[in-house]
Write a protein that binds this DNA or RNA. Structure first.
Lengths: 227, 227
DNA sequence: TAAAAACCTGACCAAATAGTCAGGATTCAG
DNA sequence: CTGAATCCTGACTATTTGGTCAGGTTTTTA
């Protein structure tokens, strides 16, 4: 069994900090384009404005970079579920989480794609994370939602499937962006598109939980500035 | 601009038919595992029980195999929207399509993964298909749904986003199978899991269209045999 | 059954690519 | 200012891999 994915400790000099950040940022783009196999060290180096050897100086192997990129993404993913607590208002808590997830998708589509690619191909690196940390987190939040259901605050929905749906509905706008663009007849997704998508997803999920009453599109406009 | 993706004409002798089929079946599995880049000709050959040279005898290049696999998948994808017509009962028509999509996902998860990988990486092969045939089809069906909305038969939903949601919700069970398994604590998804997922997705989407009244799980059980 | 067509193989090649390394350039601590 | 640490480079290597080809084997056809 593979060692757990963990963040690199941020030691090293000024230059190291800067270059590693540049490499990780470049690598995220490159991995998003072609996956692990499709990315070459030369691509990453060029995208970061460095020589291939120099990239190897900071990160021993391509796999090291890949793991570091994934670790960054997972950190991003894990936040945002805080408001889902037994005492919270279901409508408010769910709306907040959905909006947060959608905003993340709009702002970091590449991160979403790297993650999608990893999971699509069997999660060789983050399998343990999925079966460990993530599973525990979801079980915990699912219990909260079960509580809401028992107290009649929302309709009966399988909470785990609800999370699966929520992620599918939001991330699809990043992962399948070309397809979405094709169907909407757009060259790329802009702020307006994401606002509309957010309203749609909110409607679908809230109604699915028996929390009807459409979302006023005003609500969405406020917190999603043009991309 | 690249030539349109088209089916191979099924000429050739008895042996050719058989071997090509074997290669395409094997290739779908291999491409599903690692994407285009991650698949090697040796992998495909081994999976098909042939020598690498022999695979090259039937298909000139790896890209040829890939395109043929995609063409097969697209053919599969395109069917099933027939019942979405102006005169149809929205509930019946949507249920039927959702169930069909879910069944396809359960039965051909590898096909779904190959498609997902292709789109995830910018749809270099099927971009034209997405912007052409698929867009036209969706526009046509969207018009039907707009009609339903105008006549007050279902709630106001953006039809194109509805299709995007529908595909995201169903295909996620194949594309992110490892993650779903991790969350459900299962080694693999079986018939029971897919039945539960189908009921969940049906509920979510039908309610989202204002067609409430939960789906009786009995309905689902009938048409999805154990995998 | 014999010629032709279709099928199959192993050896080979060229390109791509991850990773190494010796040594030079720059930066930094004292 | 100087020595040490850090940073950077270009040339090189080993391996993987898609694709070719000459020639052998099997199947089909007439």
């Amino acid at each position: 069994m593979r060692a757990a994915l963990q963040d690199r400790e941020p030691g090293g000099g000024r230059i190291r900090q800067q270059q590693e950040a540049a490499i990780l940022e470049a690598a995220e783009r490159v991995f998003a384009r072609g996956g692990f196999q499709g990315a070459t060290m030369v691509d990453i180096a060029q995208e970061a404005g460095l020589s291939k050897s120099n990239v190897h100086y900071y990160f021993g192997t391509k796999a090291d970079i890949y793991r570091a990129v994934l670790a960054n993404i997972l950190r991003l993913w894990l936040a945002e579920t805080d408001r889902i607590t037994p005492g919270a208002d279901p409508r408010e808590a769910l709306s907040h989480y959905i909006r947060a997830k959608m905003r993340l998708t709009a702002e970091r589509p590449e991160a979403s794609r790297v993650f999608a690619n990893e999971v699509l191909h069997g999660a060789p690196e983050i399998g343990d994370f999925l079966r460990g940390t993530l599973r525990r987190l979801v079980a915990e939040k699912a219990a909260v939602i079960e509580g809401w259901i028992e107290r009649g605050r929302i309709a009966a929905v399988d909470p785990v499937h609800l999370f699966i749906s929520l992620w599918a509905l939001t991330q699809t706008y990043a992962d399948f962006e070309v397809q979405v663009c094709a169907l909407l007849g757009r060259p790329a997704l802009g702020g307006a598109d994401y606002r509309r998508a957010t309203a749609h997803v909110l409607n679908l999920l809230l109604r699915g939980c028996g929390l009807d009453g459409g979302v006023v599109s005003e609500d969405v406009r406020k917190e999603m500035p043009d991309a």
